[in-house]
Design a protein around this nucleic acid. Structure first.
Lengths: 219, 219
DNA sequence: TAGATTGTTAATCGATTAACAATC
DNA sequence: TAGATTGTTAATCGATTAACAATC
């Protein structure tokens, strides 16, 4: 028999990507002293369809919302951060300490989202030994040992596109299970390895093409 | 009567986001001296469904592919860069010259993708007057005048989340039509204004939740 | 020719939205 | 009570995949 609320089946990828937005929005309301929030109100503030928000929340909240009042903010924040894993910390390694790598290493907000980038790797000997954002930079040769010793499961790739696949292969071989890829290339990984791509050229293409279409249709 | 190939109807957002990947992949092949490429081959290299690639290309290519040989690379590259607008340059302004803003200002690759970030704005007087990546940093007060004078249509927002909506409103009021938003908040914009969000917390949520599910299912 | 590859039509899949009964 | 809000079921929409005939 299924439990009252079998969230794992309900919550999709796109729901998941909206949850952090709900979280930060509700967080803000909490700080302003609000006690309750309705799905309808969230939907309006974030410019989303109310049904969508209700459905998303129903997959995540431990309690049902109350008609007329909505959800208790404290409870909802708890449920959201549980669900998003903000309460427990995942460790991650980062490879490629260029400007983007540095940006991620020094970003303090990941910590509050349950991600602790514990170390950076780079092949440049000038970087090795430095500390950036309180994280040590180690040479590539130490990566294998580090992953195996710590059992870290998340790898962040911030090397140039040409090197990304090689780094990825190495990571996978050492036991990394989830890869956050900032290099502009699609990675080939074995079945079961998770990859999330951040891809600025793709975003730009969508935006600028839409703009071009819009401008030409106004002619 | 519709033209032989009415691309505007065929090419969707998700197609559009794959095109830059095709482009850079085919570019690489061109540099290696290849002359022809098949949709099937692209699909295999990029780990995509062949039908998807065929469909994407059929919406973009000016000529039909030839059975057995595929597409002529030179022609395809031309069509892709035409379609993606890599040949003509869009100007953009950037607001918020923090570490991410600097990263974008100094990134030389946007130029080859048809995006020229001509100037940065920041409210910090210490930054104003500096040159970063050869782009001047101007005070916020000059933004309105700048947008109106140059007619720039794309605005990039790299300020903290709390300030993003205000910056967005200002941009829209001055005539910006497309916004690339790197702040972690959804923006409210009037109908017809395009927004593309880059959203690391959302990506992270998807990745780490998938990983958690994966790890627990292996138990 | 045989078969790899094409482009297209139909089927499937997944996510969003509409409709609606239940309830505080 | 009346009505705002809830959760769910069904309909719609959009994107991907399967099936297949055409062709170099």
């Amino acid at each position: 028999m299924a439990s009252r609320r079998d969230t794992s089946l309900v919550v999709t990828k796109s729901t998941l990507s909206r949850l952090p937005l709900y979280y930060s929005h509700i967080r803000k309301m909490q700080q302003q002293g609000e006690e309750y929030v309705s799905a309808a109100a969230i939907a309006q503030s974030l410019n989303l369809n109310p049904v969508l928000v209700r459905k998303d929340l129903s997959g995540v909240s431990s309690v049902e919302g109350k008609p007329r009042t909505g959800f208790e903010i404290d409870t909802l924040i708890n449920d959201l951060s549980d669900f998003l894993g903000y309460n427990k910390v995942d460790e991650a390694i980062l490879v490629g300490v260029g400007s983007l790598g540095r940006l991620l290493l020094t970003n303090t907000e990941f910590a509050s989202m349950g991600l602790d980038i514990t170390v950076g790797f780079d092949k440049d000997p000038d970087l090795v030994g430095l500390q950036i954002g309180n994280k040590y930079i180690l040479p590539m040769e130490k990566m294998e040992h580090y992953i195996k010793r710590t059992g870290v499961k998340i790898g962040i790739i911030t090397v140039p596109a040409e090197q990304a696949q090689a780094v990825c292969d190495q990571m996978v071989e050492c036991g990394i299970l989830a890869i956050w890829n900032f290099a502009f290339t699609l990675l080939n990984v074995p079945d079961g390895i998770l990859v999330k791509n951040e891809n600025l050229p793709s975003s730009l293409a969508v935006l600028s093409h839409q703009l071009a279409k819009k401008l030409s249709s106004n002619t």
